[in-house]
Amino acid sequence: MTTERARISLSVAPAYTGSELLAVMSARLLKDGQTVFAGVGIPLLAAILAQKTHAPGLTILFEGGVIGPFVEAGKLPPSTNEQRCSRRANMLVSITEVLLLLQRGYVDVGFMGGAQIDRFGNLNSSFIGDAENPKIRLPGTGGGNDIASLADMIVAMKHEKRRFVEKVDFITSPGFLDGGDTRAQAGLPAGGMFRVVTDLGILGFEAESRAMTVLALHPGVSAADIKANTGFELPVPDDVEVTPAPTPNELAILRELDPEQLYTA
């Protein structure tokens, strides 16, 4: 029903939800021919959207042990471990084997959502508050730690001050740790944060310091908006790019994929 309304409004101006914006902007970062290890939610949607637009040769891996599926529109899986993930896959393997592909170096991009991130791209999905006495016990790493430890990462998440913090309460999935070369020193010589896609813009990381920086703003978003929604000093270059708005085609594909708005509400 919501979908109907959205479709009608399309003929006037392309209206979209924050989640749809996230899915479109992160899909555009994926390149044809790449191998992407995708988590559930926006990453899964964005990877399928990329596959159906500019990257038909994208190979998607799911944590459940799935290599190269074509997930069916309207039948999105509730996690990356149910049979819907395996639709028309090239190969099914065990969870351990698919995760070991990350370690062996077969994965170009790791792609997941995030609950809390800091200026060095460390992600927390384990505890809000002190780990010993947490305010909220979150579900934990799953494969997130493995993906973030072993691949170049794209993270898609809502841009809110409480989510973009100076230091995460707990490092579930490592970014650049304390910045500089601390990640490599900890025993993680490969991978690291590549992009963070939010509903306000696209962020990257400075080559030396490894601190987060703004690469582009979405249409209608100002430098002041993104700073006001970030809990740490976030540099915005004067000549920062503006991303092209989601196209009607991209939105139509997304809405066909997720008619029940499981992940795009």
Binding site: N145, P174, G187, L188, A190
Partner: peptide
Amino acid sequence: PMRSMLGSGVLDRTEGAKT
């Protein structure tokens, strides 16, 4: 042996893993 969990809080809180 493996190459993830290093540098994370997850490693700090587990019992029995060693570097």
